[in-house]
Design a protein around this nucleic acid. Structure first.
Lengths: 250, 250
DNA sequence: CGTCGTCTTGATCGTCTTCAATGTATGTGG
DNA sequence: CCACATACATTGAAGACGATCAAGACGACG
């Protein structure tokens, strides 16, 4: 089910509607960031766009996906399960993040669209051949993997040592930071972040229960650190107090 | 302090005592695993051995190490701190693991020898040049980084969702597995693992306190799953019961 | 307007932490 | 060789934090 790149792609190659790489919103952050004109042409030739509605499984643990790709828009969750059903989300996939493992046939995690997701996908064997011919892209992939490793380790600190309050504050801060960074800014008081995740999804990422997440968000709201607006939008009223609550401050 | 590859190396190049790559115990697992004869000669030329006594800092957060390398013998811990002193270990470095980040100047973690550690080190700029010339080694490094990422995510599941008992059992199983794998075997009943870590070091890796670790190990001993022998050696009396206790079983 | 899913809030319970004391191993100087 | 110091490990008792169980509120949508 939901195999990355099963038969039903969004259409034939290079539909007129398919954006060109030079116009791509994630052009400067994604795996193709350092590609030169020739490499970009190669990528352009083998890429396909595909969209997934919120809730849809993009790939399941045990699958052997035929495609790899980049998140162009939306949020996907990488998660894993214990046999008795306890779930832990081990990574967020935000725009520009890479999906898939060149050199590996099977995946060990579930990847699920949390919001509508658009992927820019490459047929895996073709992409791997391209990697061999273009060390610059391979190096970019190593760099991105090292970033992911750092993110995973930061989250190990959160999961192993932070309190519930600190976890919630840390997540909001991380999303605020990444959102602000899209326009080259730092998080600021009054910034409003569209956190398009359910309480359950937040809980699974923070190693908590929905009830605890809800209580901690309520507490931060009562204290005036946050304000809650319709449709899951959260306003950060005080970045400094949120930072303090995250445990990362001095 | 403790900068990887500070002036005091163990001696001049290619001392007679320095093992040859072909005799190296980690030859088939390390970053040089797929190196051919020529690449091996290059590595041989730029490598230096260095040993660290137990407890010594190999590199500190914020350092810009001049060397990268492989663990030949011993155990080192990668850890990070919260400002108030809570510590979380985010990775174990066992023989064949790679230390350092090609392409990154600074490191974000503390790396400390938990036992006497021997590193096979390469001057970083030289190693990076070598990577550029030898895509096979670079690909091996990507592969090892992906393995590390998987290990980190497995640990996120442990830290986010497992009970104290499951965490302790999982750690012992992981070490037993890795130890057995050195001789190409699977863990077996009666296998004895020299877990040369203090209770504090175990606790920091599992996101627990020393007391809880001690209690859980005692419980597993009382139940006959483990037997404790002098000098921190732990005998696994029942792999299946330890697996069951780890939460990973069906 | 009613239904369903999600979110919030409350009350109770259990696990792990904290604080404290005791036990054990190793090494040192008298 | 033994008394003692030091570091690490174990065990116990009390307390705190988050989980669990349960009920109600809110919002989207037919």
């Amino acid at each position: 089910m939901g195999t990355l790149g099963a038969p039903q792609l969004t259409g034939p190659a290079l539909r007129p509607g398919q954006p060109r790489c030079l116009d791509c919103p994630i052009r400067l952050q994604a795996v193709c960031a350092q590609a030169d004109e020739g490499e970009l042409r190669e990528l352009e030739r083998i890429k396909r766009y595909r969209t997934y509605p919120a809730g849809q499984t993009i790939a399941s643990s045990g699958d052997a996906p035929a495609f790899v790709g980049s998140v162009v828009d939306g949020i996907a969750l990488i998660s894993t399960l214990l046999p008795d059903g306890r779930r832990q989300t081990v990574g967020l996939l935000l725009p520009s993040d890479f999906v898939g493992r060149p050199g590996r046939s099977h995946i060990e995690y579930d990847i699920v669209a949390a919001t509508p997701v658009t992927l820019c996908m490459f047929h895996k064997p073709e992409f791997e051949r391209l990697l061999h011919r273009n060390p610059r892209i391979e190096r970019r992939l190593l760099e991105m993997t090292l970033d992911e490793l750092d993110a995973a380790r930061e989250w190990m600190l959160l999961l192993g040592r932070k309190t519930a309050r600190e976890r919630v504050a840390s997540l909001l801060l991380m999303v605020a930071r990444r959102n602000a960074a899209l326009s080259g800014a730092l998080p600021y008081d009054g910034q409003t972040i569209p956190l398009r995740l359910t309480r359950q999804e937040i809980a699974d990422y923070l190693g908590l229960t929905v009830e605890t997440v809800s209580r901690q968000i309520s507490a931060l709201r009562r204290e005036g650190v946050l304000a809650l607006h319709p449709s899951q939008r959260i306003e950060v009223r005080s970045v400094s107090r949120l930072t303090e609550a995250s445990g990362d401050a001095a």
